[in-house]
């Protein structure tokens, strides 16, 4: 009897060891992931809880990581919203020709993954006389503009009542005082609930680590906008806050050859955005959802 028990104990110890070993072996690829994640990164607090010294450490670490992983010297700033500024965007659908230069400018400015040709803007080719997106298409591939069509670029609408920020279980995304909806890429857990909630297909997920050649990286970066995003987190259009909060215009507007895009501070009575909102018959997409976008569309004629 005693021998039988010894044999059983021995068998169980061997079995358990083999089982644990097998699971360790099966999970081994995770080591590749963990060696790219430092302790500092793992324990990093939420952006809005960081003190200025903690934030400086984080920015320095991110710059060093970019140098190490992408071979490029970059500057990552933390640019805060300005008081008395409420951003809004308007787009003239009569003028847009669907050339997708805004899409390309966004791709370059925001350090998107090159292979997937990611961008925060999608341009719909719509049928004249219809606002039904179901009759439009985003994958058109021919000379533009085509007769009988109009073109409608769609990007983040920076909603006042944003469904995406509501659903986030960890407050990794929120609306800033100047109206821009941002993501803390170091706090997002990658559940993609925001991507499901957004009615405008504005959000993107980093399905893998972005790949960009060193010489193509835009070195002028900021924490909440165009710094190179980590694998497994959600990102979105930030109205190029690293430019616009410093008095410049968004990259998509600068690239537009037809002047279809109008951007600015609605609280400034002399701004062109203010003039458009006051003098054109503007509308927003999917108004019935109650999202209250700060991205407007209008027709000129």
């Amino acid at each position: 009897m005693a021998d039988d028990i010894k044999r059983r104990v021995a068998l169980k110890v061997i079995g358990t060891t083999l089982g644990v070993g097998a699971f360790a072996k099966a999970l081994a690829p995770i080591a590749q992931f963990t060696e790219n994640t430092s302790v500092g990164e793992f324990l990093q607090k939420h952006y809005r809880e960081l003190s200025s010294t903690e934030l400086a450490t984080v920015l320095a670490r991110l710059e060093a990581d970019t140098k190490k992983n992408y071979g490029r010297e970059v500057t990552i700033q933390d640019i805060r919203p300005q008081a008395g500024v409420q951003f809004a965007y308007a787009l003239n659908l009569s003028v847009c020709i669907g050339c997708r230069r805004c899409v390309e400018a966004c791709h370059v400015e925001n350090n998107h993954d090159r292979a997937s040709h990611n961008s925060y803007i999608r341009v719909l080719e719509m049928e004249q006389g219809s606002m039904d997106m179901g009759r439009g298409r985003a994958d058109y591939d021919h000379a533009v503009p085509e007769d009988g069509k109009f073109y409608m670029p769609v990007q983040c609408q920076q909603c006042e009542n944003a469904p995406c920020t509501k659903v986030c279980p960890v407050e990794a995304t929120w609306q800033e005082p100047d109206g821009i909806v941002v993501v803390d890429y170091n706090w997002c857990i990658g559940c993609r609930y925001c991507e499901a909630a957004c009615p405008y297909h504005a959000r993107r997920f980093n399905w893998k680590k972005p790949v960009i050649p060193a010489d193509e990286i835009n070195p002028n970066q900021s924490y909440l906008s165009n710094r190179i995003r980590p694998q497994g987190v959600v990102e979105k259009c930030t109205f190029c806050l690293h430019k616009t909060r410093q008095g410049q215009l968004p990259a998509c507007l600068e690239a537009c050859p037809t002047g279809a895009r109008v951007f600015g501070n609605v609280l400034d009575p002399n701004s062109s955005i203010r003039w458009v909102l006051e003098n054109k018959r503007v509308f927003v997409l999917k108004e019935e959802l109650g999202t209250r976008p700060r991205f407007f569309y209008f027709f000129d004629k």
Binding site: I189, C191, Q231
Partner: peptide, 15 residues
């Protein structure tokens, strides 16, 4: 199934 759907399961503690 929720854990395997997360892009960053290492940040689970944020939840």
């Amino acid at each position: 199934f929720v854990i395997v759907d997360l892009g960053r399961p290492d940040r689970f503690w944020h939840m």
